[in-house]
């Protein structure tokens, strides 16, 4: 069982001419393997700052981040070992894959760098990773990213994140750049992989509907403060905080719209 602890983390950015900007204000939560937490909030609420601190692209101003009770390493081999256990899937599959390299290269690199399998088994592992993300290895392994669709690319990005056999996965808006009809497919894939490998997943999104269905718990972030957290259905169906309610009411919800006996919410002449 892997446990990642975010303890009283605060992050201040210095803004030229405007003093300090408090991006995170005393945020605490725990992510354990086998658990999916959705992190929701509007633009600028601090969602991506949390992801950056978890991957140590940014350093927290105060507070602690602990992996299995140990402070996370800041540099060198220790940091690399940490990043092998906690991996990230980025939003934009068009930007996160290198256009010069084949899909094989993208998957071989983490396998070799992290010495996941002996050298003579790398090719087999690449193929098995592609199968895990429901891609046909022969059809994609020698291609370059531009030859694949957005959905296929994001599957490759997920396979790459899984290559190092991480215990925790940070997924920052993993489907928002994809076409609507394939979003659920990719999310369902992530859900399957999460169960197969008992991964802990932090699902960062502004889409409340998928947050509700994809995760066990929802954390609502507003101006760097966690204003509400709880089981996914409770947070959406019975929000306690005004901000959560505002977010929910602003999200399109045709079920509610057409269920309302008074007719559509927008006035009609």
């Amino acid at each position: 069982m892997t446990t990642l602890d975010f303890r009283h983390v605060t992050k201040q950015y210095k803004v030229r001419g405007a003093g300090d900007m408090l991006a995170l204000d005393d945020v605490s939560f725990t992510l354990t393997s086998g658990q999916t937490i959705a992190l929701v909030g509007q633009s600028g609420s601090g969602k991506s700052t949390i992801a950056k601190i978890l991957t140590q692209l940014e350093r927290e101003t105060s507070g602690e981040v602990l992996l299995d009770g140990e402070p996370i390493p800041r540099r060198g081999k220790g940091l690399r070992a940490y990043r092998q256990r906690v991996r990230m899937v980025f939003q934009d599959p068009f930007a996160s894959l290198n256009p010069y390299h084949t899909i094989r290269h993208h998957l071989e690199r983490p396998l070799r760098l992290d010495k996941v399998v002996p050298g003579d088994q790398v090719e087999d592992e690449v193929r098995s990773l592609l199968k895990r993300v429901r891609l046909e290895p022969d059809a994609v392994v020698d291609r370059r990213p531009h030859e694949l669709s957005g959905g296929q690319r994001q599957r490759v990005a997920i396979a790459r994140a899984l290559a190092s056999r991480p215990e925790l996965l940070i997924a920052d808006e993993p489907v928002s750049m994809l076409d609507v009809s394939i979003r659920l497919g990719v999310l369902n894939l992530l859900a399957d992989l999460q169960r197969e490998s008992n991964l802990g997943v932090l699902y960062i999104t502004h889409d409340l509907a998928t947050a509700r269905h994809f995760s066990d718990e929802i954390m609502v972030l507003h101006h760097g403060v966690v204003v509400e957290r709880g089981p996914a259905d409770d947070v959406i169906l019975n929000p306690q905080h005004d901000y959560t309610r505002a977010l929910r009411d602003a999200s399109p919800d045709p079920d509610k719209h057409f269920a309302d006996p008074a007719g559509p919410a927008t006035p009609r002449s």
């Binding site: 659920l184 369902n188 399109p252 919800d253």
Partner: peptide, 28 residues
Amino acid sequence: RRLLGSFPSLTGDRGDFIRGGQHEEGDQ
């Protein structure tokens, strides 16, 4: 109907979401 089914309902049932494995959508 398929397009409608691509959007999980905010307050309703899970719909197409998480039926594990049987999702092979038309990627191209």
